[in-house]
């Protein structure tokens, strides 16, 4: 598998030379601003450098053009039919890994950690993508562990409440308080202080953002949600209802102390109407949690590695 390493300016010049459409799903689309900033001298210098390594050829009319191999690579990179991106919190300071496919050609694209150079590997087989991601997850999760699969159906409000409680729980853990119990007044205050807003980055759905803003404005919605969760035995009441705490099942699933990594897998199939699958997995030593945000509610499910592999990973990346 040949691997090409290009600087930011070189890749930008290659995009200029290729003259393909730049799909918004291409990871190279971020370079558009760099192209707009580049002056003619930089472009010509980069073109000359690329000419030295036979990436750029000169046509008879004096115009420069890409080598046919790199023309194909740029076609896949800029107009992909299928994009898979995988990254995780453990590797927060590294750029994400991208796999791109157009018809039967698959390439690998990754920026270096300082985002100054780019690595392009080609050609790949599509099956490699599944194996790559599987190995990344196996690095954290124990393959042998056997866990009963559990499932939680939550409404949007309950999901937002759970996010807030998790953040409050983390705060408590930082203060060496290990019990997941919260004063109701503190919960209301957390909404006042816009704690859930900090989760906006994970709020991929606009419905979720609306729910957060609604709950921040309407205090009664917070109390109603807490009541519902207590009725469903997700939360327990302490001190005559002035405090609530996690039930055992909830703590087993969501204990932040057990989280080893949180990873994100995005697959976009670019068709007439692009279909995007965005997943994030919370990785424990023995299990993997997956939250599916639907239109009206959220489904949180816990898998062991084998069932996760069969039910989620393989069907997603096949």
């Amino acid at each position: 598998m040949p691997v090409g390493v290009f600087t930011k300016d070189e890749l930008a010049t290659m995009i200029l030379l290729s003259r393909y459409d730049i799909s918004q799903f291409s990871p190279a689309a971020k370079l558009l601003r760099r192209i707009a900033e580049m002056d003619d001298k930089t472009i010509l210098n980069a073109a000359k450098n690329l000419h030295k390594v036979n990436v750029v050829w000169e046509r008879r009319n004096g115009e420069l053009d890409l080598h046919i191999v790199y023309s194909i690579v740029m076609k896949v990179l800029l107009e992909p039919e299928d994009v898979v991106t995988y990254t995780s919190v453990r590797n927060l300071f590294q750029s994400s890994m991208n796999f791109l496919r157009r018809s039967k050609t698959t390439i690998f694209f990754k920026a270096t950690d300082d985002y100054e150079s780019f690595i392009i590997g080609f050609p790949l087989e599509w099956g490699h993508v599944y194996e790559w991601v599987r190995d990344e997850i196996l690095d954290v999760v124990d393959e042998e562990a056997d866990v009963e699969s559990m499932e939680l159906e939550l409404s949007m409000e309950e999901y937002v409440m759970l996010l807030t409680l998790q953040s409050m729980f983390l705060d408590r853990l930082r203060k060496r308080k290990k019990t997941p119990r919260f004063k109701v007044t503190d919960i209301v205050k957390a909404f006042g202080d816009a704690v859930p807003i900090t989760y906006l980055t994970t709020a991929l759905k606009p419905e979720l953002l609306d729910t957060i803003l609604n709950m921040m404005k309407n205090e009664e919605l917070i109390y109603d949600t807490l009541d519902n969760m207590v009725e469903r035995d997700l939360l327990k009441i302490y001190r005559d209802g002035s405090e609530v705490g996690y039930s055992k099942e909830l703590l087993y699933m969501l204990d932040p102390r057990k989280i080893l990594d949180v990873s994100f897998l995005i697959r976009v199939a670019v068709e007439e109407e692009p279909k995007a699958i965005m997943m994030n997995f919370v990785l424990h030593r023995d299990k993997i949690l997956r939250a599916e945000v639907g239109d009206e509610g959220v489904n949180i499910k816990a898998y062991d590695f084998e069932s996760f592999d069969n039910e989620v990973l393989r069907p997603t990346l096949r």
Binding site: T13, I15, L16, L17, R19, Y20, D21, I22, L32, R33, I35, A36, E37, D40, I43, L44, A47, E58, G62, E63, L64
Partner: peptide, 30 residues
């Protein structure tokens, strides 16, 4: 708009040939 203009750029050995509206569109984008 900028993406569309970009397709019309041509590069020669010592010259980058840009369409007329290039500067305006690039400025608007930036």
């Amino acid at each position: 708009d900028y993406k569309d203009v970009l397709k019309k750029v041509k590069i020669k050995w010592n010259l980058v040939i840009k369409p007329k509206e290039y500067t305006k569109v690039a400025k608007r984008y930036m």
